[in-house]
Design a protein around this nucleic acid. Structure first.
Lengths: 239, 239
DNA sequence: TAGTGGTCTAGACCACCCA
DNA sequence: GGGTGGTCTAGACCACTAC
C-alpha cells in the first residue's frame, strides 16, 4: 500500500474511533511528517482525501478540523456493491435471482438519458429482488456486456456481481454515472415489491465503467419509495 | 488564479468545445509541462481534478483519455445555486418568495437524519416557490443562522441567497451534506405545486457549511416527483 | 513573529503499456 | 527500450491566523 494511503487509513480509523473527535484538530502537516516519517506532500495527499471524503475541513493558518462525516446509508452512495453495504449495516438480507437471460440486446432506450455511448450489444440480463429484514425493497436489473463477461455464472448473481468481477475476473471497476428519478410503479414493481396501485418507486439508473474507460455494466435499480434514501457529500467548486 | 487551476480550466474548456473529444487522449504529462511551462506535479494536479469531475480517465502506461462527462442537470448536482443552474440551462424561471420570518427557531427535527450537531438557534426562515417554464416545480425552505447572517434582505431571497452570501457578505461556502427521500405530498405541497391527493414529492434536505466548518444554512427542497432528476458521478474507492 | 496550510519546483524511482 | 502515469522527496515561497 502507498504511504499516503497508509496515513489516510490510520487517520480515518482514528477519526472513526474518536481518537480525533469532531471539532478538534488533527496534528499539523509538519507534525504528520515526523509522526509518520513522510514528506509534507505525502501527508497533504492523505489529508486531501480525508477532506474529499468529508472527514475533515482544512483551514489555512489553523489546521485540519475533524467534521461530522457522512456515513454509508442504505441503499447506496458512491459505488459500493449491495453485498458490501449489507455487511456494513446490521441487516439480514436475502437475494432472489428471478430472471437470468444470456445473449439478449442491451435495452439502450432505458439509459439514453445518461448520455453514454452505447449500442445494442449482446448482454447477460439479470433480475434480482433484494429482501431486507423480510421485506422486498429493491429490484435490480443488471445488463452486463457479453464482450467483457462472456459467461456469467448464476452463482455470481446469487452472491455478488462486484466480487465476481473484481476477484474472479480481475476487472478493475473505476467509475459510474448514475441518475435518480421517481416514476410510477409498473406491474412488475407492484408484484415483486407488493405495492398498491398508484404507488411510486425511486429509480436509480447507472452505467459502470472499467479503468480503461469501457462501460460494461448497466443497472436499473427500483426502490420502494418509503424505504429510499440517498446521502451525498458535496464541496463547493470555486469558480 | 493558480497555475494548476489555469491548466484545469484550459483543458476543461477544450474538452467542452470538443478540441479534445471523448475517446481521445490528452497530451501526456510531460507534454503538458512544456505546453504550459509548469512542473509535472502541477499538471498532475489539474489532471486529478479533471478525473475527479468526470472529464477524463487516467490509464497508466497509456495516458489520460477523455470520457463522456456528466453535465449539470436540473435541479442539482454538487453545490450549485438555483440561479447558477438556471443560467446554465435555457429555461425561463421565476422565483416567488411566499414566506419570510426572522428570529424563529431552527426546526431541528427536520434535519436530525443528517447527523449534524445543531441546536434550536435563531434563524431567518425563507420559503420560495421555483417556477420553471411557467410551472411551479420546487418549494425551497431555507433556514439561515441569524448568528452568521444577522439581517437578510428580502431582495437577496428574491434574487439569489448564494450570491448574497458570497459576494456581499464574503462568506466562503465550502461543503454540504444532503439527503434525498421520497415523501407523500403535504397540504402545502399540493397547494403550491398543484398536485393531486396521493401524490409524492422528492425531498432534498441539506446542511451547508462554511470554510471554517460552521453549518449555517439548512434547506428543505421539495420537488414535483415527475420533474425530479438527480445525476451523480462516482468513483470506485479502493479498499 | 511563529506556526499553519496553499502552491510550485526539479528530480528520483517505480509499474505499466506497447512496439 | 522508450513513453506513460503513480509515488515520493526536500526545499522553497506565499497567505493567513494567532499572539
Amino acid at each position: 500500500m502507498n504511504k499516503s494511503a497508509l496515513v489516510y487509513d490510520d487517520l480515518r480509523q482514528k477519526i472513526d474511533r474518536d481518537v480525533y473527535q469532531p471539532g478538534t484538530y488533527l496534528p499539523s502537516e509538519n507534525q504528520l511528517c515526523q509522526l509518520y516519517g513522510i514528506s509534507r506532500e505525502t501527508g497533504r495527499k492523505a489529508l486531501a482525501e480525508l477532506a474529499e471524503d468529508g472527514y475533515i475541513q482544512k483551514i489555512r493558518g489553523k489546521g485540519s478540523i475533524v467534521i461530522e462525516h457522512r456515513q454509508y446509508e442504505f441503499p447506496v452512495s458512491g459505488i459500493v456493491s449491495y453485498k458490501e453495504l449489507a455487511e456494513k449495516m446490521n441487516v439480514t438480507t436475502e437475494n432472489v435471482v428471478y430472471g437470468f437471460e444470456e445473449h439478449v440486446s442491451l435495452p439502450v432506450q432505458m439509459f439514453t438519458s445518461l448520455r453514454v455511448e452505447m449500442t445494442a450489444e449482446p448482454v447477460t440480463a439479470v433480475k434480482r429482488l433484494r429482501v431486507i429484514d423480510g421485506e422486498p425493497d429493491i429490484i435490480d436489473k443488471d445488463y452486463i456486456l457479453t464482450a467483457i463477461v462472456p459467461k456469467l455464472p448464476k452463482a455470481a448473481a446469487q452472491d455478488s456481481l462486484y466480487a465476481y468481477f473484481e476477484n474472479d475476473l480481475g476487472l478493475e471497476i473505476a467509475y459510474a454515472t448514475k441518475e435518480i428519478t421517481m416514476e410510477p410503479a409498473n406491474d412488475e414493481d407492484r408484484e415483486q415489491l407488493h405495492l398498491d396501485p398508484g404507488a411510486y418507486v425511486a429509480v436509480v439508473r447507472s452505467v459502470t465503467s472499467l479503468a480503461d474507460a469501457t462501460p460494461f455494466q448497466f443497472t436499473e435499480s427500483r426502490h420502494r419509495a418509503d424505504k429510499f434514501r440517498f446521502r451525498d457529500f458535496a464541496r463547493r467548486t470555486k469558480k
